[in-house]
Amino acid sequence: MKKAATVPRKTLVAREDLLNKVSEIAKDQGCSLFELVNDLFQLVIQCNKMGFVLRQTVEDCRVLELAKSSGFILGLERLWYDMVDMAYMADKSASLKSWFDSGVWFAARYDIVNSESFAKFKEELYVFTWNAPEFVFEHEGNNLFVRVTSPRFTEAYSFLFASFLVGALETFGYELVNKEVLRGMIRINSVRNVV
């Protein structure tokens, strides 16, 4: 019988509750605690080589999970802009309606009567607009001002994304007061309908 190669080992100490939990995960995944901890260390080294810490990578990967459950898809920004420009040129009103409807759908996923939902909506929207250097929501009484700036947005994308935002805000009960849209810049002023 061939003798199994022995891997040189060291021991490390860690909190018992954490190790017990990780041990359960290893069992669920059909591997040993030794294998799982080694995989974990390999991941830490991989992240380190790329200039990241594990905490940051876990948070970043949660973005993918969040996008998946929120009906968003990830792709090359330039490709989206090219498609948006073509669609906007081909059928402007249908394009605007499509983005507006998508904004309504996105906002309707939240419990809109719960005040904490709007904060969650904003937080998740920030995540999905990592391509916009400035994305600000400012509340002033019942008024809400939204500012989006990105030098990369095309004119068509600016108008369509503004339509998405208006759709989402209306779903949360904000009525549009006025909006200003230019290439790479969106300014929306809306007021909350108080019943």
Binding site: G75, W80, V84, A90, F106, N131
Partner: peptide, 20 residues
């Protein structure tokens, strides 16, 4: 330069631009 786009919007964009 990845960016997120709603899947429904992507489907719409694809259909319209594919046609035109």
């Amino acid at each position: 330069g990845g960016a997120f786009v709603p899947l429904d919007v992507l489907n719409f964009l694809t259909t319209v631009t594919f046609k035109h």
